[in-house]
Structures are given as structure tokens and as C-alpha cells.
Design a protein around this nucleic acid. Structure first.
Length: 308
RNA sequence: GCCGCGGUAGCUCAGGUAGUAGAGCGCGUCUCUGAAAAAGACGAGGUUUCACCAGUGCAAGUCUGGUCCGCGGCA
């Protein structure tokens, strides 16, 4: 059995505020690597404080627009405007290009982030049905009830209808969208491609109490750095009706600017949302049995040396 | 000191005419294929228990009396 050798890729993942960025930079320096971010929010320009972007070395006034942190180049950060459409499929396409580019230059790519779906899209080479979101259709379907949507979907894809989450409108709508555009079953089009890379997945695991401390510290810092100012600027420019503003650290301010709640309550709310989010992330990661869970840099270093 | 209101799930509170305690939030578990920091599902919590004590009822968060605590007003 002759299988061709795939180029190597190291994934660093973990819940929010677990210290991925710091760890990844250290490892990248050690192994002559470059970083590809796997974060669904850091792709947006102008959203810096709330998404906890790593601090750039210098303002990108030069034409190359490189995002360099402590000497390590980062990709997939600041690549679209907050009001531009962005999603997994777009992410996958650009990120793979970035990874291949790093490999071409004989450097080791590190895929670093907490967006499980984005990471999986790369690692498992998920083959998304080539059906871009159709706004008009979605708007029309959104007006219907869950029951009505389910009926429509069952007509189009009886097999998938048995398995889909009937209560989730968003999923039903996408399933219908794909069926209508392709004239085929949505469920049967959910495919993984052949792996593109030889992947080592490393996860950072922290005790719950410590993660909580880190989350709280990070949020306090965001407030000090001027999160309020950043949010104000964004809503003035774009308003609330863009997907990127649904992110934690941003969505919570809606009531504040309406004068409904106090600053301290926003902070409390953000902390709760962030902690809840980190748990959802762990739920996602937990079922991925290929992740090697580690506690610190030394362990990660050893692991990389051993496996590659 | 007097008057009024309140003391029910971790928190905020619902609980006509008494009949074996509910909601929202939080918490826990999970799902996830072009919005994923999104969208959704399920579940555990009230020391035999509704601040405490006594009483009337077959039966009392639910009625009566008292005690203790909190809040507001008068003094």
C-alpha cells in the first residue's frame, strides 16, 4: 500500500482564554513555524479588543499587510470587513491556500484557534455542498414555522428528514436551500474528502476554576483597553444587523446603549456568556478522539518531536 | 416605637375561592457539514419542603395568632 506522504500540519486548539496564542507563538518560534488562525471572529477587521486578537508588531502601513506577532507571521486575521459575508466554506478555501503556502516555503504551519467547525473543515477536509447562502430564499423560509419547514424538507429529502434536528430552523433552512439548488439529498452530500495534511492535533486543557479565572481576567482587561469605545465605533459605522456583531463581547452592549442596563451588568453578562461558550467549545472538541490533550509548553514540544 | 409590605429552587419572582409546588435566568449533559463567539435539544435542583412556632381543618405556601429577619413610611 503506497500512500503518498502528506505535508505536516500542527493544530493547536482549546477553549477561549486557554492560552492558545501564547503557546502557539512559542512553538512556532521553536519549530520554524507560521500561524494560521482558526477563529471565526478574528477574521474581521476593526474588531480587535473584543476578539482578543494577538497584538500586531506594527501597524500595517506597508503594502504587504502582513500580520506579524513577536516575529511570527499570522494568517486569517483581518481579512474581511465586519459587514462582509464570511463563513466556513470561504474560510476553508483561503486557509488551505495559506497553509500550503507556508509549506511551500519549507516552514511548519500551525493551525491555531477555538472555532471547532473551522478546524474540522481543514483537518477532515469537509466537502461542503457548493451552495452559497441565498438570502432571498432564506428570508422567505424564515417566515415559516418549524413544522412547515420540516414538511418541505421531508418532501425534498425523506432520508435526511429522519435525522435532522426538527427544532432547529436554521438547519432546516440550509438543508432545504441545498436540496433546492442541487436537486439532491442534502444529507447525502455531507461528505469528508481525502485528508490533505498529516495532522497532529494538540488541545489545551485547563481545570475549570483556572479557566474561569483566566476568562474573568481577560474580560476585565478588555474593558480597560476600551471595549466600549470599540463597540461604539462599530455600531456607528455598521449598525447591529450584521452577523459579526452577534459575537460575545459585542452583542451584550445593545441593551446598554438603549440605557437599559449598567456597565457592571454588561461585564457580568459577558463573563457568563464567555464561560458558557468555552463549555460549548469543549463539548465540540471532546468527541474528537484524535486530540492530544496537554497542559503546558514542555508537553507540547515533546509531543511534536515524538510524532514528527 | 407605630403603620405598611415582604421572607417559596443558586438568583429574580408566580402560586383565584386551602387538596400532594411553578416560570425565567443560572447550572449540568448533548447536537452540529456555507451565520458556528451562531443555531438548537435534553436534564438535575425545593433537607417528607414554602423563615420559625402554635392553632383551626380530612387536608395549610395558601386561613388564624405569635416569634424572628429584611425593606419602605411615620415618629
Amino acid at each position: 500500500m503506497k500512500k503518498e506522504k502528506l505535508p505536516k500540519l500542527i493544530v493547536i486548539l482549546g477553549p477561549t482564554a486557554s492560552g492558545k496564542t501564547e503557546l502557539a507563538i512559542k512553538l512556532a518560534k521553536k519549530f520554524n513555524g507560521e500561524i494560521v488562525s482558526a477563529d471565526s471572529r478574528q477574521v474581521y477587521r476593526e474588531m480587535d479588543i473584543g476578539t482578543a486578537k494577538p497584538l500586531k508588531q506594527q501597524e500595517a502601513k506597508d503594502k504587504k499587510q502582513e500580520y506579524i506577532v513577536k516575529g511570527v507571521p499570522h494568517y486569517m486575521i483581518d481579512i474581511v470587513n465586519p459587514d462582509e459575508e464570511f463563513n466556513v466554506a470561504i474560510y476553508k478555501k483561503i486557509a488551505i491556500k495559506a497553509i500550503k503556502n507556508i509549506q511551500k516555503r519549507e516552514k511548519l504551519p500551525f493551525l491555531v484557534g477555538g472555532t471547532g467547525l473551522y478546524i474540522q473543515a481543514i483537518v477532515d477536509n469537509i466537502d461542503f455542498p457548493r451552495v452559497p447562502p441565498q438570502k432571498k430564499l432564506r428570508k422567505k423560509l424564515e417566515k415559516k414555522t418549524k413544522k412547515e419547514l420540516f414538511k418541505i424538507y421531508r418532501e425534498l429529502d425523506p432520508e435526511g428528514a429522519k435525522l435532522i434536528d426538527k427544532e432547529n430552523k436554521r438547519r432546516l433552512i440550509r438543508a432545504i436551500e441545498v436540496c433546492k439548488a442541487t436537486k439532491k439529498s442534502f444529507w447525502q452530500q455531507r461528505k469528508k474528502g481525502k485528508p490533505l495534511f498529516d495532522v497532529l492535533q494538540i488541545g489545551i486543557k485547563l481545570p475549570k476554576t483556572e479557566l474561569k479565572k483566566r476568562v474573568e481576567k481577560r474580560i476585565d482587561k478588555m474593558f480597560k483597553l476600551g471595549l466600549e469605545r470599540e463597540v461604539k465605533k462599530l455600531i456607528k459605522k455598521y449598525g447591529w444587523n450584521i452577523p459579526s456583531m452577534q459575537a460575545i463581547d459585542y452583542q451584550e452592549w445593545k441593551n446598554y446603549f438603549k440605557g437599559k442596563i449598567k456597565l457592571e451588568e454588561i461585564k457580568k453578562e459577558i463573563k457568563i456568556h464567555t464561560l458558557q461558550f468555552s463549555k460549548r467549545q469543549m463539548t465540540w472538541f471532546k468527541r474528537n478522539k484524535r486530540i492530544h490533550w496537554i497542559k503546558n509548553y514542555q508537553k507540547a514540544k515533546k509531543l511534536i518531536k515524538k510524532v514528527f
